[in-house]
Lab assay of single mutants.
Amino acid sequence: EPEARKIVEKLINNGLSPEDVKRWAEKNNNPEVKKAAEEYQKR
């Protein structure tokens, strides 16, 4: 999901860690963003 990846990169560029992004995604019920954050961590 390229859109989710863009969101993850934007949040990380704004100073969030991938863990923060995953928590944000869970709080906002956004499994695509959570998955993208996990993939981002593996890179």
Rank of each mutant, 00 (worst) to 15 (best):
E1T: 11
E1N: 12
E1F: 10
E1G: 09
E1S: 12
E1I: 12
P2M: 15
P2T: 15
E3I: 07
E3K: 05
E3F: 07
E3R: 07
A4K: 01
A4Q: 03
A4N: 03
A4V: 06
R5L: 14
R5Y: 15
R5F: 14
K6H: 11
K6C: 11
K6I: 11
I7M: 08
I7H: 04
I7P: 02
I7T: 07
V8M: 09
V8N: 01
V8I: 07
V8Y: 05
V8A: 05
V8G: 00
V8Q: 00
V8P: 00
E9R: 10
E9T: 05
E9N: 07
E9I: 12
E9L: 13
E9Q: 11
K10F: 15
K10E: 15
K10L: 14
K10H: 14
K10D: 14
L11I: 02
L11Y: 05
L11S: 01
L11M: 14
L11H: 03
L11D: 00
L11W: 10
I12G: 02
I12E: 02
I12K: 01
N13V: 08
N13I: 08
N13M: 14
N13T: 09
N13K: 14
N13H: 11
N13P: 01
N14C: 08
N14F: 13
N14M: 15
G15R: 02
G15W: 02
G15E: 05
G15L: 04
G15H: 03
G15I: 04
G15N: 03
L16M: 14
L16V: 06
L16N: 05
L16T: 03
L16P: 00
S17F: 03
S17K: 05
S17T: 13
P18D: 02
P18E: 04
E19P: 03
D20N: 04
D20P: 00
D20S: 05
V21P: 00
V21M: 03
V21Q: 02
V21Y: 00
K22R: 09
K22I: 15
K22C: 07
K22A: 10
R23I: 12
R23K: 11
R23S: 08
R23M: 11
R23G: 05
R23W: 07
R23H: 08
R23A: 12
R23E: 12
W24I: 02
W24N: 01
W24P: 01
W24E: 00
W24D: 01
W24M: 03
A25L: 02
A25W: 01
A25T: 01
A25F: 02
A25E: 02
A25Y: 01
E26V: 09
E26G: 02
E26I: 11
K27P: 00
K27W: 10
K27L: 14
N28F: 10
N28A: 08
N28W: 11
N29W: 04
N29A: 07
N29C: 08
N29E: 06
N29L: 06
N29S: 07
N30M: 15
N30L: 15
N30F: 15
N30V: 10
N30A: 13
P31I: 11
P31S: 09
P31W: 11
E32L: 11
E32Y: 11
E32H: 10
E32I: 08
E32M: 11
E32W: 11
E32K: 06
V33L: 09
V33K: 00
V33G: 01
V33Q: 00
V33N: 00
V33E: 01
V33T: 02
V33R: 01
V33F: 05
K34D: 03
K34Q: 09
K34R: 12
K34L: 15
K34V: 13
K34G: 10
K35S: 08
K35F: 09
K35R: 13
K35Q: 10
K35H: 09
A36P: 00
A36N: 02
A37P: 00
A37S: 03
A37W: 05
A37V: 13
A37Y: 05
E38A: 06
E38R: 03
E38F: 05
E38W: 05
E38D: 09
E39T: 06
E39W: 08
E39M: 08
E39G: 05
E39K: 05
E39V: 06
Y40N: 02
Y40G: 01
Y40D: 02
Q41V: 11
Q41H: 08
Q41D: 08
Q41A: 12
Q41G: 08
K42E: 10
K42H: 11
K42R: 12
K42P: 06
K42I: 12
K42C: 06
K42M: 13
R43K: 13
R43M: 14
R43V: 13
R43Q: 14
